[in-house]
Simulated assay, not measured.
Amino acid sequence: MKEKEQELLSLIEKEGRMESHHLAKMLDTTIDDVEDMLRSLEKQKIILGYSALIDWTKTDIQENVTAMIDVKVTPKRGVGFDAVAERIYRFKEVKALYLMSGTYDLSVAIEGKSMSEVAQFVSEKLSTLDSVISTTTHFQLKKYKHDGVIFTEDDDDDHRMVVSP
């Protein structure tokens, strides 16, 4: 991978909406070069998509319930965790899936319209898979920071307790 492509990826990872002419200036190259690099990186499936980070609490739209589920599984001979992971990530409710080190094997992030819907997913779809040994579900109560973006209100007041000798 070329150095300019690496720089371009770093820039759009932080701010995916940056316009080509701004990227060209920052990379000291032409707009056409930037657009060619973007098309090439998309074609190679290095850039998989562009998304917005939305604070749903500030809208009139009902927020979904988000849950992180720790899953212990029995890996399959010859394919390890990949086969069970593929079965899990194909469910429409699954937003993210990670192989983890530590006490559990997989971390599954899901969204549902209610806690009941999440519970139904766990009991009827996830825990019924042959390789799944156990699950532990954690519900997200409040989002403070995601992908480096802080979600709490900005106030410049320093709320630290004053400590003096």
Score class of each variant (00 low, 15 high):
E35F: 00
E19I: 11
Q62V: 12
F81L: 15
N64Y: 06
D105H: 04
V94A: 03
D70P: 03
V122C: 01
S10T: 10
L141Q: 06
R90F: 04
D60K: 15
L27I: 04
T135G: 08
G102N: 02
M100C: 05
E63W: 02
E124A: 12
N64F: 06
W56Y: 12
D154Q: 11
D60I: 03
S127L: 07
L106C: 05
L23M: 09
F139C: 00
V84S: 08
D157W: 08
S123N: 14
A52S: 10
V71F: 04
E111Y: 00
A24I: 07
A96C: 01
D33V: 13
R87E: 15
V34A: 04
T135H: 07
K92M: 09
K142R: 14
L38A: 04
L27N: 02
L8F: 07
I54A: 11
L53Q: 12
E35M: 07
T128F: 03
E7P: 01
H159V: 10
V122A: 00
V149C: 00
S107P: 00
A83W: 05
D156W: 05
R77I: 12
M1L: 07
F91V: 09
E93L: 09
E153S: 13
L53C: 10
M100G: 00
L129N: 06
D156N: 08
K58W: 10
L141I: 04
S107K: 14
S114R: 07
L38E: 06
D147H: 12
E7F: 08
L8D: 03
I150W: 03
K45G: 02
S20M: 02
S51R: 09
G16P: 13
V162A: 13
V79C: 08
E7G: 01
A119C: 08
L48K: 15
L8I: 06
D55M: 03
R17D: 11
Y98D: 05
R160Q: 12
G112T: 03
G78F: 07
T30Y: 02
H159A: 07
Q44I: 00
S134P: 01
E13M: 04
F81Q: 03
T59Q: 12
V79R: 13
K2H: 13
V79I: 13
S40Q: 01
V94R: 02
I133A: 05
D157I: 15
A109F: 12
I46E: 10
Q120T: 15
F139Y: 12
N64E: 11
K92V: 08
E3F: 08
I54K: 15
Q140W: 00
M100H: 00
K2L: 12
Y144R: 04
M161T: 10
S123W: 03
P75R: 08
S164C: 10
L8E: 03
Y104F: 13
A24R: 06
K2P: 06
T136V: 11
D36M: 04
E19L: 11
K45F: 05
K95E: 14
K113P: 06
V73R: 02
H159W: 10
M1T: 05
K4H: 11
D82H: 10
S20E: 10
A96G: 07
Q120I: 06
V122P: 00
A119S: 15
A96D: 14
I46W: 05
L9M: 13
L97W: 01
K45L: 04
H138R: 13
V118G: 01
E93H: 11
E19M: 12
I88L: 09
G78P: 07
T136Y: 14
Q140N: 10
T66K: 09
M115C: 06
S114A: 05
